[in-house]
């Protein structure tokens, strides 16, 4: 056992995070896996980075069927991996949809931006459960990151995590040109926040603001009131450009027959009002 642990890296011993092979198998079986061969599992513990890389590829190809590899890959990450292997291990583990997202957390502050992006993307996939709060906290902090890709990925991920507490920070990010924040705000905003986003029509690029307006319009009326949605459509109509027309027409086509009739009327009127609008192709 001691030797096996060494192969995974000394730091794992200290953190007490190395799961035994039997633990890994148990986890895999519990999730209904078993197609990930034991030989590949052993490869994950190799000293040779190329062999580990190959095992990660095997796991990724096996998909959720390689759930038996989850503890081993998690342990690999916690023990520390070189830059390209770390990114591959994060991506692989994320595809296996682990319940425990803690292996990703340290990598959200890694010095290599690509690794941070991978970690944040993985954390954004955290399933409902105790790990979500941690994931949301890490992603919210990542909005402050010096790297533009990291910030954008975090902004998108916060929407996926339904991190409503992060909306104020998402506004700060949007106002600093983290345009991915618009979509997440549209998915998460309360009435006051939705009004704040709507108020940015005209100040935020139209193709950006619509990524936030669209999810707002399709959210249930219980979350975003019908009159708010009508006001959004009216405000877009008032923009009066070809892009506004295309956006409204697209919504008009996709509007559910069971959706709000008032919004539908507003869309119809908006499309007509903007049909001869200038600009754009």
């Amino acid at each position: 056992m001691r030797r096996a642990v060494w192969k995974l890296g000394g730091a794992a011993i200290l953190a007490g995070v190395v799961a035994s092979v039997s633990d890994a198998r148990a986890a895999g079986e519990a999730k209904g896996g078993g197609v990930f061969p034991a030989a590949s599992l052993a490869k994950l513990k190799s000293d040779d980075p190329a062999v580990v890389r190959a095992a990660l590829d095997d796991a990724r190809l096996a998909g959720v069927g390689a759930s038996a590899a989850i503890p081993a890959i998690g342990a690999l990450l916690k023990s520390g991996l070189s830059y390209p292997l770390a990114e591959a291990a994060i991506d692989t583990l994320a595809e296996l949809e682990p319940r425990d997202n803690s292996p990703f957390v340290p990598y959200a502050l890694h010095r290599v931006p690509k690794v941070r992006v991978a970690a944040i993307r993985a954390l954004a996939k955290t399933p409902s459960g105790p790990g979500m709060a941690t994931a949301a906290s890490v992603l919210q902090a990542a909005l402050r990151d010096p790297d533009v890709l990291v910030r954008g990925t975090a902004a998108t991920g916060l929407g996926a995590l339904k991190a409503i507490a992060a909306v104020p920070d998402l506004f700060l990010a949007l106002d600093r040109h983290v345009y991915e924040a618009a979509s997440s705000i549209g998915e998460l905003c309360n009435p006051a926040e939705c009004a704040m986003l709507t108020a940015r029509i005209g100040s935020v690029p139209f193709d950006v603001i619509t990524t936030g307006l669209e999810p707002m319009l399709f959210r249930p009326d219980a979350q975003v009131r019908e009159d708010v949605k009508v006001a959004i459509v009216t405000k877009v109509r008032d923009v009066g450009t070809r892009e506004a027309n295309k956006f409204l027409a697209n919504l008009q086509r996709r509007w559910s027959k069971t959706g709000s009739a008032a919004v539908k009327r507003a869309l119809d009127a908006g499309v007509i009002a903007t049909s001869s609008s200038p600009g754009g192709a």
Binding site: W6, G9, G10, A11, I13, L14, P49
Partner: peptide, 18 residues
């Protein structure tokens, strides 16, 4: 500062080819 666990981490890193 790390005591025996710290020493183990150092030992393991020395052995790791990477």
């Amino acid at each position: 500062l790390g005591g025996a666990p710290g020493r183990a981490a150092i030992d393991a890193a020395i052995r790791q080819p990477a």
